[in-house]
Design a protein around this nucleic acid. Sequence first.
DNA 1: CATGAAGTGGAATAGTTCTTCAACTTAAGA
DNA 2: TCTTAAGTTGAAGAACTATTCCACTTCATG
Lengths: 199, 199
Amino acid sequence: MTERPLRRDAERNRQRLLETARELMARDGLRVPYEEIARAAGSGMGTLYRRFPDRQDLVDALFAEHVDAVVALAQQACRSDDPWSGLTWFMERQFELEAGNRALGELLRGDQQGTARLAQGCARIAELAAQLIERAVGAGQLPPGVTSDDLEAVHLMVGAVMDASRQQDPDRWRRALAVALAGLRHADLQPDGEPMRSA
Amino acid sequence: MTERPLRRDAERNRQRLLETARELMARDGLRVPYEEIARAAGSGMGTLYRRFPDRQDLVDALFAEHVDAVVALAQQACRSDDPWSGLTWFMERQFELEAGNRALGELLRGDQQGTARLAQGCARIAELAAQLIERAVGAGQLPPGVTSDDLEAVHLMVGAVMDASRQQDPDRWRRALAVALAGLRHADLQPDGEPMRSA
DNA sequence: CATGAAGTGGAATAGTTCTTCAACTTAAGA
DNA sequence: TCTTAAGTTGAAGAACTATTCCACTTCATG
């Protein structure tokens, strides 16, 4: 089935909506009210709903490439000769992106699940992150107890500081990241053989 | 000015409302809808509003003693012979309380500001926490760059993990705390500016 | 046990957002 | 130009929560 292209005016409107939503979500996060997006774009709510019946459609259209960019970062980090450098480099780049785009941070931290498209990207990132950890552990740069879950936790931790300090001190997260990464290296973590199922 | 005591039935209702609110907020956080509290307590909304016209009045009545308990913990920690032990002991006890009471965590992390009464308690905790840090730095148990702001950041960091894992693994925060505290000891933090890579 | 101040319930009003829809407008091709 | 399918709009209805208000009930006391 061939999708017939949108009418020219409709396509223009669609682009304007996307552009507007991108800016608002980067600044305010994923939950910007539909009404606000439509108003800022100079359209009616009906138009926004017609193009993006589900918020996830909109988010997907907006952030697919951002998530892909993070996947690419992770891949590049995996190619680093020095596993630990690759890991820290990846985390810094990732957080720099999140610092500039609130919605991206919410997505990557799972505050809000995206469509299959985005979820797949996030899963890929998680895979690669696990590799980064494994490689660093294998190289003796991280103690053996550290797991990919710990890296996810670091993501949440630094993200929390970022969210709390966006206004006052937008670079504060760097300090938190330094603390968290140093902690991974030096904390005495049991391998944690616990099955860790839900209670 | 002598406040005349409540009528006996009114006092009973008030206690029931407090008890109910305490349970609901411990489980669901500070933002439990007023309507839900009233219904669970078997009262009308009017009654709840009459006793606690402002949500802060309610929160204050409920959590003053909890906050005081944390102040007491901090004081006790300050009396420890070993500054670092005192610090870690305090953080663990504090998070254990937060783990058992969602609303308390929200209060202590400033998700929601309380009345002057509570704010004062939180300020006192912050003071004592700063002392704990200073003492540990003075004893050479923490590097000189670490500040009380870093401890606040640790609070946010571990809190984020706790919030994310309450359901699946309620004890996960302990691991995050271990990471964060080890990070404080080992991260190479400049006294003010940018952090550097860990050693 | 009558009285009225204190207390109570819950419907009503209001502010937010989400979501739908019927009437209106317009681009694009015959 | 005319036709009409595609597109647009904003008001309307639904869900949720906060907050007020007043007719009604109940306790405490003379």
